[in-house]
Design a protein around this nucleic acid. Sequence first.
DNA 1: CGATTTGTTGACTAATATCAAACTGTGTGG
DNA 2: CCACACAGTTTGATATTAGTCAACAAATCG
Lengths: 236, 236
Amino acid sequence: MPTAMMIRRLRVTTELSEEDANALLKLPSVSDDLPAETTFVREGDRPTRCCVIMSGFAFRSKMTDEGRRQILSFDPAGDLPDLHGLVLDRIDYDLVTLSPARVAFIEHRHMNQLIKERSTIGRALWREAAIDASIFREWIVRLGTKDAQARLAHLLAELRSRLAAVGLAAAHEFEFPITQSELADALGISSVHVNRVIQNFRAAGVLNIQRSKVTLNDIEQLLKIGGFNDLYLHQK
Amino acid sequence: MPTAMMIRRLRVTTELSEEDANALLKLPSVSDDLPAETTFVREGDRPTRCCVIMSGFAFRSKMTDEGRRQILSFDPAGDLPDLHGLVLDRIDYDLVTLSPARVAFIEHRHMNQLIKERSTIGRALWREAAIDASIFREWIVRLGTKDAQARLAHLLAELRSRLAAVGLAAAHEFEFPITQSELADALGISSVHVNRVIQNFRAAGVLNIQRSKVTLNDIEQLLKIGGFNDLYLHQK
DNA sequence: CGATTTGTTGACTAATATCAAACTGTGTGG
DNA sequence: CCACACAGTTTGATATTAGTCAACAAATCG
C-alpha cells in the first residue's frame, strides 16, 4: 500500500470515500529509498511522473544565479510535492531529501486516468495543490513581514500543525532532522543568526532544536512570537 | 465579451481551441467598476464566485497581527486571482484594487459546470493556478535571497514579462500605478528604502518609476541586477 | 485653492551579515 | 579504544543593510 500516508494526508483537508481511497491505493507506483541530501527532481526537468513522500522529509528549493539557495517548502510523509507537474511542462525547483526518505513515483498517465474516472479525486488533488499554494503565500508573509525570531517561530508552528494533523507530532515535540544552515536557507537569514535566535529561544524556555528533534516547551509563546494563525492551512 | 482579456491571458500558457474560447466567452458574469484601494474579497470569506480583472490592476495581500501588510501578487487585466476559491472553503488573503479597475465575477456553479463539460478548460484553469503558485515560489526567492535593489529589479522584470505577454507593455515602459509605500509592502522593505533604491536606479540610468508609469532604460542591467530568469512563468 | 497623500532628505539606530576561529559530537579505521 | 576527520554548532569582532523618526517638498485631488 504505497500511498496510505498520502490518503491520511488528503483526508486532513478533504472528505474522501472508501471507494476513492481504494482507487488511490491501487495506483501503480515504484518506490525508492534515498539517502539524505539527494536531489531527485531538478529545476528544468520535464516531468513524466509525480512523487509521494512515503517516509522521512523532502524539501523544495531553488538556487539563484548568485549561488544562494532558497528553501521553499518542507514536505513530510504523505506530501505530493510535485503534483502540478501534471499540468506544467517543466519543474521550476529542485526536490531534495532532507533526511533519508522513501519516495514513491506515480506515472502521470495513471494519475490522469484516475482523475478522468473519478472527478472527486481530481478535485481533491487540485485542492491539495491549492493548499500548497496557500502555504507559499504564508511563506512570503513570513519572509516579508517578520524578523528572524518570528520567522523561526512561525515556521515551527506551521510544521507542528501540519505534522500533528497526520499524527507525526506529539504534544510538545516532533522529529525534524534539519541543520541550522538549512533553516537559514528556508528563513532567508544567515546560519550564524539562526544559531543565535535558537539560543535566545532556549534561554527563554520557548523551544529547542537538537539532533533532528524539535521540542516546543511553550507553544503559546511560540504562536504569539510567530504571529501564527492556521487559517491558511485549510485543515478541517 | 467580459472575458476576452482572460482568454488572451490563458493563451499565453495554454493552447485553447476556438470552441473552448467561445465556451469561456459565454460564461455568465457580472462586472463592476471599482475605485482604487477597494477591498473586494476579504481574508476569511467563503467564496461563491471567482473574479477576472478586466482592466486596471488588483493585488492580493495579507495583514499580520502586528499590523503589517504583505502584498502577495499583482494582478493585471486578464488575471483570475481567486481561482482556487473553486476548491477551497475560505479565501486566505485580501483582494484589493491597486488602480481603478473593472472586475467581472463568475459564479462557481457556472465555472464548475463548464469544467465538467470541457475537461480541457478544467486543465487550463488548473494550469493557470499552478503558474500562480510558481510565481509565489519565485516571490519567496525574491524576499529570501535578494537585497532591496535586486528585489525591485526582479519584480519589475517579472511584471514586464507578464504584461508584455498580453500586450500590456511596450518595449521600454508599462503602466503600473503604484505608490512607493505599496512597493515597500510587496518587497518587504520600508518605503523610505524603496525611495532610495529608486533614486539609485535613476542615477544609474537603469529605470524610473513615476506617476503610474515604469520606464526601463536598461533592461539588460535590470535582468542582471534582479537575477531574473523567466522559466517559472511557464510562458509558451 | 487648501487639504491630503506621496515622495524626499538627514540623522540616528537596530537588525542582521560576514568572517574567522574554536568547539562539539559522531562515526571510521587503525 | 583511540586518533582522526568531518560536519555542524558556537562565539566574538566588525561591517553593512535597512529601519525609524521627523521634517519638509512636491504632487494630486476635490
